[in-house]
Simulated scan of single mutants.
Amino acid sequence: MLQTWHGTPPLKTIGTDVQLVTMPVHDPGKYHQQVVRDSSRWDYLIAPNKYSADIMSRAFRKDTNQMMLTGYPRNDILINYTPEDIARIKGDLGLDPNKKLVLYAPTWRDDEFVKAHEFTAQLRLDLAELQDRFGSDVTFLIRTHYMIANSLDLTQFTNAVNVSDYQDISELYLISDVLITDYSSVMFDYSILRRPIIFYTYDLEQYAGTIRGFYFDFTKAAPGKLVKTTTEVGDELADIFTNGWQPDQQYINFTERFDEWMDGKASERVVNELFDRDNMKTVPVKGDLSALGIGGDQQIELRDAAAIWALNKDFTSNEDVSFIQYYDKLEKPLPVEALEGQLIKSTHTDVLMQTYIKVKVTTPNRDIIGWVSRDDVM
């Protein structure tokens, strides 16, 4: 089974990294069990960038050789689209080709639920105020998250269209001149287009602190202005439409960090990896291991319960489970010496996926020699 995932996850915590569980489950342990049970069915998991790959591998308990470092195939269209594609999409939606189009795509709130897996949508953006300000010159496309159970009634507005049921959100990106969002992963996809993004973050402190939690400082990295009122949203839109827009350095830094693999060729890479079982390579590291963070005397300490793998284990094979034992500190840490290292890389991207250290563990009865993950070296 190939898990293509539904968004880029480096902002909001995901999987077993979620510690603030405000969803109906209410129990982090139970939620994590559900995550691991579901992810155990996946043979491969696609990552959109190296930063996300590290997080996804840990959060979904996937082995290094189960991660596809390819970028998302569904985003290829954001590089390969044509003017004819945009005209077709606008025609399918019955939109005036001459009007400005603004896509509003907020994320869902874990604590706004009806019952398990059904959440409500409360439209915090004041469409009436925006209609008074921009009249018929701007059309707002409203896209709620797929987990939202209730349907928004927008019949009173002449400047808004509910596109929540539109099949492919990538096509909505293509026709939009501006994106308004909050903490949704749509920001990562839309930034591929190098178009303006406005962040309507009316509940930033609550969301980051008590609802979900972030991996990085969103306020310092967001590729756009953060605002808290509809009036401020309108001010930003007016500035963009009147004065034009160019990406600033923060926007450029964001795209360089997260869009590196979004080059329009992800589909090709995924097919190559999926049907090419030899898609990993091992690079040995002998002698001085300081580049791997190992001290000069190469005496190290392992985490309790670190997995020790057999010397003949093939880390590029998903089917090789050659295992010796778990490291047990007992009452006193055992002497451990680092002997050499090996780097596991993808043959298609040459990006480092995992590092393993060959160790010798001296026990009262025998020496144990095997491989451990660099992450288990303290």
Rank of each mutant, 00 (worst) to 15 (best):
P10V: 07
K12A: 13
D17K: 06
Q19F: 12
Q19G: 13
K30D: 11
Y31K: 05
D38F: 05
D43S: 12
I46T: 10
I46H: 06
K50C: 00
R58W: 09
M67F: 03
T70P: 03
D76Y: 02
D85M: 01
P97C: 03
N98Y: 04
K99S: 02
K100R: 14
Y104A: 10
F113T: 01
H117N: 12
E118S: 04
T120R: 14
G135L: 08
V138G: 03
A149T: 10
S164D: 07
D168K: 06
E171T: 06
L172T: 07
S176V: 12
M187H: 00
Y190K: 02
R194Q: 15
R195W: 04
I198P: 03
Y202V: 11
L204Q: 13
F216Y: 15
K220C: 02
T229W: 09
T229Q: 05
E232D: 13
V233Y: 01
E236W: 00
L237G: 00
T242K: 12
N253P: 04
K265V: 00
L274K: 08
M280I: 01
D288P: 00
S290G: 01
G295M: 09
L302A: 11
L302Y: 11
V321L: 15
Q325C: 14
Q342G: 00
K345W: 03
S346L: 05
S346R: 13
T349G: 07
